[in-house]
Nucleic acid binder design. Structure first.
Lengths: 160, 160
DNA sequence: TAAAATGATTCATCTATTGAATCATTCTGT
DNA sequence: ACAGAATGATTCAATAGATGAATCATTTTA
C-alpha cells in the first residue's frame, strides 16, 4: 500500500517537480556564474554590486543580512571590490562605527553591464519556451516564492 | 537606449524569472536536505542510494559519472554508506578491477522511506499552487529541462 | 560615567572538493 | 605470450569556502 506523501501524477508516475526545480535552479545559477565571470565577477560580487547600487549608503551589517551572509564574510568580499575600484567604504558621519557603502563610477558602469548580462541570461534560459509560457512560468514561480516567503528582491547567493 | 538582452515584461519591469528559478531551486534543495538529514542522510547519500537502487550492480566509475562527481569523491561516500550497512561493494567476477554496487536490505528499506520523504517534500513545496497550477509548472519545467539537455533522471547534487 | 551593545575585523578552524600519484587488473598490438 | 597502454579504485596533499569566537573602536543604555 502507498504510505503518505503527495498523490502521484495522473499518469501513475510520481512527480518530481521539486527535483526538477533544484536542477534547473542549479543550472540557472551556474550559467549566470559563467556570465558574471566574463565580467570578472563572482556571483557574490554581482549580488553585492546590485544591493549597493539599489541601496547606496547601506552598512556592511545590513548588506550581510540582505545577502544572507555572516558579517565576517562580507569583509573580504568588499575588500576585493574596493581594491578593484568598484566600491567605496566611507565612514558614516553620524555613527563612526559603520561604513556607508557606495559604488564608484566604474562600479556603476559595471552594474549596468551586469544588468544587460542578466537579461541575456534570462533570454537564454527561457529560450525553450514561448513568450506565453515564459509569462506563465514567471507567474507560477512568483506565486511559489510568495507562498514560501522568498524575498523576490533578495539576491541571496544560490551556490553554483 | 536599451542595449541587448531580452525585452522586459509587458509591465515595463525587467523579468527576473532566472533569479527566481535559482532561488526556488536553492530553497527546494535545502528543504530536501533537511528532510534527508532526518533520515541520517546527506543529499549526496540520498542521490547515491537512488542510483544504486535503480541500477543495481553499477560500478563506482559509472556512479561518479551519473552523480556528476569525480571518482575519488565517491570513495568516502560509499565508505560511509557501507559502514552504515546500507550498501555493499562486491568485486565483479568478470572484471576484478571494479566493484558492483548493491543495496542491502536496510538500504532498500531506507530508500523506501526516502521516496516517501521526497513525495512529502514535493507536496510541501507545491502547496501554494492549485493542482492544475502544479501540473502546468511540471509541464513547463520539463520543457525547460528538455530544452537545456538536463537529464531528468540524473540526481546530480544541487548543493545546499 | 560604567556597562552593555553594536559594527567591523581578524583569525583559527572546518568541511567539501579536487587533482595527482599509486596500485591492481585488464586490454591492445605485435 | 608479452610489453606497454588503459582502466577502476584508492590515497593523499592542496585548495577553496564558509563559519564562529575573540578583538577593537564606537555608541547607547542605565
Amino acid at each position: 500500500m502507498y504510505s503518505g506523501g503527495m498523490a502521484p501524477s495522473p499518469h501513475g508516475r510520481p512527480r518530481r517537480t521539486a527535483f526538477l526545480l533544484s536542477q534547473l535552479g542549479s543550472l540557472s545559477a551556474s550559467r549566470f556564474a559563467e556570465r558574471t565571470r566574463e565580467l570578472g565577477l563572482t556571483p557574490s560580487d554581482a549580488g553585492t554590486l546590485r544591493w549597493i547600487g539599489r541601496n547606496p549608503g547601506l552598512s556592511q551589517r545590513v548588506l550581510a543580512d540582505r545577502l544572507g551572509a555572516v558579517p565576517s564574510r562580507v569583509v573580504p568580499l568588499l575588500d576585493s571590490l574596493e581594491t578593484r575600484g568598484l566600491v567605496e567604504r566611507v565612514r558614516s558621519s553620524t555613527d563612526r562605527r559603520n561604513y556607508e557603502l557606495h559604488l564608484t563610477g566604474a562600479g556603476q558602469a559595471l552594474l549596468g553591464r551586469l544588468r544587460d548580462v542578466a537579461q541575456e541570461h534570462e533570454g537564454e534560459l527561457l529560450a525553450p519556451l514561448t513568450p506565453e509560457e515564459s509569462d506563465e512560468l514567471a507567474r507560477l514561480l512568483a506565486r511559489l516564492a510568495e507562498g514560501h516567503g522568498v524575498d523576490v528582491e533578495a539576491h541571496r547567493d544560490t551556490g553554483r
